[in-house]
Design a protein around this nucleic acid. Structure first.
Length: 557
RNA sequence: GCGGGUGUAGCUCAAUGGUAGAGCAUCGGUCUUCCAAACCGAGUACGAGGGUUCGAUUCCCUUCACCCGCUCCA
């Protein structure tokens, strides 16, 4: 399936529009239309229901307790210092004046040494490159391979001047062994007297500009004065709102470990390059659970939530051959994580599966960070264990107090975080649902059809009520049924045009059931119910329609 | 951010330095007995800004958006 077809359908039927489209749009922002908002709401509600209202039983068959919060998008900026986002999200980047490429300043020399094509080529021909400066050979490299691989390198642009300046400079220190770094800087500089030694771009060899912070968090100001003190950030993830409220929730809800706190909400990241429709947006919605547990049990809960989450996607219709869990390697994991599994989906726009959700074992990293930065105690006291403890082992009150303040009685819980992207799952559901097939017309000739095969729980419209023709009392019967169903779920009434056309319209909207009122309805109050995917029809009493449809909307169905 | 490509009606696509067309879709009407029927009628477009020109949708510049590749993706 090509993405353009899906994008076109989403626009045509009102699933997704470009934000501020009449002004030419804005890169990385999207609006959900009438059908899209229902789809995404159903996704969020399914998540909330299946995670918060009625979570599955735990690994030992025990009940799991999860509560929700809804935190402000703008928080005290210290939150983002504690979480590491201010540092991590403002990496100094250097821009190449040749090709415009950005490179992280702190990784430049590592990238040059290991993954720059032109440096590779250079080091292969001059092994070891640091032994000597072989001018004729460098000149020949510059005129051949260099021309293709590093067009903006000083050595390539202006070999004579560059080699000349190297000769002068290096002469004075003939015995000094030059590091690769020094060589590359010489090769990148035409006129060191004017510019000083320059750092080359790993892509094209052009000179890099000064390092400047590249802000990945959106900034704003609280209050009218745009001063440094008033600077705030739009949250880049919802998780931190949960961590900083850990104590509040604990103190107000009588929860005991293990338990979870869930949140669905918007988050913002100033992505370098939003791409692939809504997949990488600058404003997006997350569905996050922070599950707090005893450190000794964290591995068990990590595996539990990972498996629960994979199953959830499969149940809501993502095909297992396109869905895959991928355990991150130790090098790939964030520094706080003891284990992370990405749940990935094979989108049509990519050859590689892309992340829908990350299930991360965050250990006690976040609570510890906030405890240190805020100076507030965020530890958990295991009252139950303390009650059971043999107090006679303590010499005096002081020893008792001492014991109470330490593990196993008092400790920082570990956290398992299943963090899902609502927009990404919505996109995956749209991709998965999009189907082209053919169904026979009145003459039996197969006609192409586009049908969105949503799981009934997620479908924006659950049923359409269609009078076969607009006469003989059929519209009245149909209206009565429409009014009966409407309070329970989204129903659509359509009496325009031929019935076949109306079926096709509902197919594109992904409506799982079409109820048709025909001549027989007038005689015995039965109607036909058409299955979207098979187009087969069954006849059933009008009075049984509500229950029949509801049967398919129940969680787990 | 760079390189390449694309911007004309809701969609798919024409034509043109001088009044912008079609098919499908949409809406209204006639009709109606199960999978985009027929007929009649209607509305809707040159992404934005600037320049050249008597006149620009067409040529030039800038910009914005989208697609592909590179890059980025705590």
């Amino acid at each position: 399936m090509e993405m353009e077809k899906l994008v076109s359908l989403c626009r045509r039927r009102g699933f997704i529009f470009q934000s501020s489209e009449i002004y030419g749009g804005i890169n990385g922002f999207w609006d959900y239309g009438p059908l899209g908002v229902e789809l995404k709401r159903n996704i969020k509600e399914a998540w909330w229901h299946d995670m918060v209202v009625a979570p599955p039983l735990g690994p030992d068959g025990e009940e799991i307790h999860i509560v929700g919060v809804d935190c402000a998008i703008i928080m005290n900026p210290k939150v983002w210092e504690a979480s590491g986002h201010v540092a991590g999200f403002a990496d100094p980047m250097r821009k190449c004046s040749g090709c415009g490429h950005f490179v992280r300043a702190d990784q430049l020399w590592q990238i040059l040494a290991t993954s720059s094509r032109w440096v590779d080529s250079l080091t292969q021909e001059f092994t070891p490159i640091t032994e000597s400066i072989d001018s004729p050979k460098l000149l020949s490299w510059a005129k051949n391979k260099g021309k293709k691989l590093a067009p903006n390198l000083a050595l390539v642009r202006n070999p004579e001047a560059t080699l000349g300046s190297i000769a002068t400079r290096v002469k004075g220190q003939a015995d000094a062994r030059l590091e690769l770094k020094d060589i590359l800087r010489y090769l990148a500089t035409e006129n060191p007297d004017a510019t000083g030694l320059q750092d080359p771009c790993p892509i094209c060899g052009g000179p890099l500009g000064e390092a400047a912070p590249f802000k990945l968090m959106f900034e704003s100001y609280v209050g009218v004065e745009q001063s440094k003190e008033n600077k705030v950030y739009l949250r880049p993830e919802t998780a931190q709102g949960i961590f900083v409220n850990f104590k509040n929730v604990l103190d107000s809800s009588r929860l005991k470990l293990p338990f979870g706190i869930a949140q669905i909400g918007k988050a913002f990241r100033n992505e370098v390059n939003p791409r692939n429709y809504t997949f990488r947006s600058r404003e997006f919605e997350q569905m996050e659970l922070e599950f707090f547990c005893h450190p000794d049990e964290s591995a068990k809960w990590y595996e539990f939530w990972r498996d629960v989450r994979i199953k959830w996607y499969a149940e809501l219709g993502l095909r297992s051959d396109k869905l895959r869990p991928r355990e991150q390697s130790a090098e790939e994991r964030a520094h706080y994580s003891v284990g992370t599994t990405d749940i990935e989906y094979l989108f049509p726009f990519s050859d590689e599966p892309q992340e829908l959700e990350g299930v991360a074992h965050r250990s006690d990293y976040d609570l510890r960070q906030h405890q240190e930065h805020s100076g507030k105690d965020l530890s958990y006291f295991d009252d139950e264990l303390w009650q059971k403890a043999d107090k006679s082992q303590f010499a005096d009150k002081k020893a008792e107090q001492e014991a109470k303040s330490k593990p196993p009685y008092r400790f920082l819980p570990h956290v398992i975080e299943p963090s899902a992207g609502a927009d990404r799952f919505t996109l995956a559901v749209l991709c998965e649902a999009y189907t082209e097939d053919a169904i026979p017309d009145e003459k039996g000739v197969p006609q192409p059809r586009v049908v969105m095969k949503f799981h009934p729980r997620l479908a924006p419209i659950k049923a359409a009520i269609l009078p076969l023709v607009n006469k003989d009392g059929m519209p009245e019967k149909a209206q009565a049924l429409y009014r009966e169903l409407k309070p329970h779920f989204n129903v659509f009434y359509d009496d325009k045009g031929a019935v076949g056309r109306r079926y096709r319209r509902q197919d594109e909207a992904g409506t799982p059931f079409c109820i048709t009122i025909d001549g027989q309805t007038l005689q015995d109050d039965t109607v036909t119910i058409r299955d979207r995917d098979t187009t087969e029809q069954r006849r059933l009493p009008m009075a049984a329609v509500l229950q029949e449809i509801q049967k398919h909307l129940r969680p787990g169905s």
